[in-house]
Design a protein around this nucleic acid. Structure first.
Lengths: 210, 210
DNA sequence: CTCGAGTTGGAATTGACATTCCAATTACGC
DNA sequence: GCGTAATTGGAATGTCAATTCCAACTCGAG
C-alpha cells in the first residue's frame, strides 16, 4: 500500500513503438474478451491475436488482471467516444430515441451476438474483482452522466416537469439499455432492447410540460 | 451420437440415493456458479462443496456443460418457485410494486453482491454455448409469461388501456429488472434497481384507465 | 558513438483442471 | 438370496494456462 496506488499504474517511459504495442495488445484483448469473456480469454489467445510474445504482455500490464483493468477502461473510452456527439446532446425526446435506436441497429448488424461491451464485463467481474468493480462503477457513471445532464437541461429549460427526478430517470434508462441488451443477446433479436428503451423514453416523455 | 438427443439426458433409472446425490451436486454447483460464474467454478470446487467424487459428477451429468445446463434449469425452477405466488398474481399496480420490491430487499440483504441468478448465467453463456442459450431463452420466457399474463388480465378487465402493448410492457419490466440488478450489483446499492423498476411500473400505471 | 532503459523472443516452470479408468461397493427387482 | 445395474472412490492422464526468466536487441539522449 506504499506504491502510488495501483490505479495509475505509474506510466513509465514508453517508446513510440512501445505505446503502439501496448495499444495493439489492449485492442486484441478487448475484442477477444467481448466475445469470450475475460475468464474465457487466455494469454496465449491474446498473444496470437495481437502478434506479440508473452513477455510483452507481462511487461506492459504486469499480470492478467492488469490487462483486464486496461481493457475495461479502453472499452469505456471507446464506447463513449463512438456515441458522441449524440451522447452529449440528449436534451430532447427525439435525441434520446435516435441515440437508443442507433445502438439497436448496431446490435442488429452483429446479429445480436454479444451484449454491451461494458455490461458483459460488469456481469462477469463485479463480484470477484474489487478493482475491476471500481472501474466499472466509474464506467457506468461516465455513461449515465451525459444522460442525466441532457435531462437536466430539458428540465432547466422548463420542458420537463419540475417533479421529474432526472437522475433517477437517467439511471432507469441506462438500466433499460443494459437489461434490454441482455435479453436481446439471449433471444437473438433486438426487439426486447427496443421495447425496453422505448418504454422508459415514453415514460420520460410523460413528464414533458404541456 | 445415437443417444436420444443430448437435450433430455435420457433419465436412466436412479436410485433414491442417486437422485439425492444428483440434487446435492446441482445445488452446490448452482451456489458456486452464482458467486464465481460457470467458468470460474471448477469441478474440484464442486466436488469439495458437494462432498462427492469426480466420478459421481461425470456419472450424473456427462461433462461440465451438462452440469451447467442442469444448473440453468435448476436456477430457473428455484427462482420462479420462490417468487410464487406473487408471480402469478401480477394483475395490479400494487402487486407489481410489491413483487419488485421484494427482489430489491433480497438484494439488499445480501449486500448487493451477485446479480440475478439467471441473468448472470445468461450474460456469461449466451454467446458461447448454444444449448445453454436455448435454455436461457425458455428461462426468460417462463419468467416473462406470468408478467404478461397479469397485465393482460388487467387489460381484459378494462383497467389497462386498450392501446397498451402488454407483451412489450412485460418485456420492458423484465429488462428493467435485469439492468437494474446489474447496476445495483456493480454499485453495491439497490437504488438503481429500484429506480429502474419504478420507472417502468410508473409507465405501466400511466396506461391505467381513469 | 555509447550507455542504460525500454523492448522482445522463446523456453522453462508450476499448477490446475477436465476428463477417463477401473476396481470396489451397494441397491433393488425378481 | 442373486445378479445386473447403479453408484462410488481415487488415482492417472493429458492439456493448457499463467507466470517467470534471461538473454538478445533496439532506441534515444548525451
Amino acid at each position: 500500500m506504499s506504491a502510488p496506488a495501483k490505479t495509475g499504474e505509474s506510466k513509465r517511459r514508453l517508446t513510440t513503438g512501445g505505446r503502439k504495442t501496448r495499444e495493439r495488445i489492449i485492442e486484441a484483448a478487448a475484442e477477444l474478451m467481448f466475445h469470450r469473456g475475460a475468464g474465457g480469454t487466455s494469454i496465449p489467445d491474446i498473444q496470437a491475436a495481437a502478434g506479440v510474445s508473452a513477455s510483452q504482455i507481462y511487461h506492459y500490464f504486469g499480470d492478467k488482471q492488469g490487462l483486464v483493468l486496461a481493457v475495461i477502461d479502453h472499452q469505456t473510452d471507446t464506447r463513449l467516444a463512438q456515441q458522441r456527439p449524440l451522447l452529449d446532446n440528449l436534451d430532447s425526446i427525439e435525441a434520446l430515441r435516435e441515440w437508443c435506436d442507433r445502438a439497436g441497429s448496431r446490435q442488429d448488424e452483429r446479429g445480436c451476438e454479444g451484449g454491451c461491451e461494458i455490461g458483459s464485463l460488469a456481469s462477469e467481474l463485479a463480484d470477484g474483482d474489487q478493482s475491476a468493480r471500481t472501474r466499472l462503477v466509474s464506467a457506468f457513471d461516465r455513461w449515465e452522466g451525459p444522460i442525466r445532464s441532457g435531462l437536466a437541461r430539458m428540465q432547466a429549460r422548463g420542458e420537463l416537469s419540475e417533479r421529474a427526478d432526472t437522475a433517477a430517470l437517467a439511471t432507469a434508462l441506462l438500466a433499460a439499455i443494459q437489461g434490454g441488451m441482455l435479453l436481446s443477446q439471449v433471444r437473438r433479436s433486438s426487439t426486447a432492447y427496443r421495447q425496453a428503451v422505448s418504454a422508459v423514453i415514453d415514460h420520460i416523455e410523460s413528464h414533458l410540460v404541456r
